[in-house]
Nucleic acid binder design. Sequence first.
RNA 1: GCCACCAUAGCUCAGUCCGGUGGAGCAAUUGACUGUUAAUCAAUCGGUCGUAGGUUCGAAUCCUACUGGUGGCGCCA
Length: 431
Amino acid sequence: MPESIYKHITDIETSDKEVKVRGWIYRIRKMKDKIFVVLRDATGILQCIGKLEDLSEEAWDNLNEVAIENAIAVKGNAKEDSRAVNNIELVLTDFTIIHKGEVFPIAKDQSKEFMLDNTHLFVRSYKSTNIMKVKSNVLRAAREWFYDNKFYEVTPPILTGSACEGGSTLFDLKYFDQKAYLSQSVQLYLEALIYSLEKVYAITPSFRAEKMRTKRHINEFWHIEGEEAFVDFEGNMKIQEELVAFIVQYVLENNKKELKELERDTSFLEQIEAPFKKITYEEAINTLNENGHKLKWDDDIKTEEERDLSNLIGEPFFVTMYPSAHKPFYVKINEKDPRWCYSADLMAPEGFGEIITGGQREDVLKTLVERIIEEGWSPEDYEWYIDLRKYGSVYHSGFGLGAERLTWWLCGLDTIQETQPFPRTRNRVYP
RNA sequence: GCCACCAUAGCUCAGUCCGGUGGAGCAAUUGACUGUUAAUCAAUCGGUCGUAGGUUCGAAUCCUACUGGUGGCGCCA
């Protein structure tokens, strides 16, 4: 990489003389013979002071002209100063304008609506920047873990001709003269790829046309999906808990500054280590009923119940052995007791709830076809998928982790929308 | 898809219940200023009250429809 003559803010030391920095104006306070400028770059903020007596006439004029979010370049001498943020201040010797521009529209008070209309500018905010830095490490840690554990990263299609999760939540589109859909999950394609690579993963966008407005849903999210041959239900949970524990550790180590600035209390996160607690669906229901709920076998664990359960248990945990009727056709049914199937959800504590669904896949041709028909689909639409069970079918398992769900929990945010720089929600596909 | 709520200055809101000449703070502009921490002080600028109808002597305010948006739920990652 070519070396820059400019330093980044967090690299500046108090002994630096005539150091050059560039970025955007975060705050500015003008007085008669001195002006304080708080400069922002990708790494942090820095208070600069420009004094009339230290600057050329041109530099002083420039300094008087600028406003919030103008792009600037400065030169100055650093010194320790307890009156400045982070106890460091730059005494300016030069000040140039890169771009002055118009009045920045985002000020102290914003409504949610105004903020979402101006997402393209709001991404500059401190909070948004910190969240994106955490999310970057969530994705990086996931890739590192998969690499260390000999998984291959693959690139399955996002445009597809067949549904995975169900028709009502599918975005359809015109594909030349055919109909196509945006992927809801690349799981079925990963299942095809285990027959050559055995251990595969993909990080791709997934789309769900759910017309709902909640703190935990966005219509476009990034899906971290893994699939492995010769792995059963239990082995699959082991992969998930090790992956998640690794990501949690990675973020705790590498995003201390960001988590602190997001005012995240990390005491819960610090205790997390694999293996995670496992409770059956039945135990989950009993626990809930002991705490005021009234659920029967086969009832869904809904938002409120899931939140209560997540708060009650106080550590990450799997809910296992779900009733078969709740789960899609590809989930393997228990041969001895077909009432339940090999599917598990991983729940985050502190009320955040589900972040992964995973399980063992149906590997028997006959059962798979029956399940597809039972669900009202037509086997012809899934011919290629059914084919996978004809040529050396083996037991295998996989899972899908929501990158935003995980980031939402790690950052301890109010809504999951905050984890996407440009969240796609019911009413918003712009900007 | 269902339920609730909102729309007034560039931004955040008060004013609506109980109709009678549209307000504040921030931003912007101008000036003052002693090391400020989203500085302070003074002045100035800024509005077809979401749109269309209706009631009324008179509507931001009451009624109807529409449009846009926000929160919650069914679902799921």
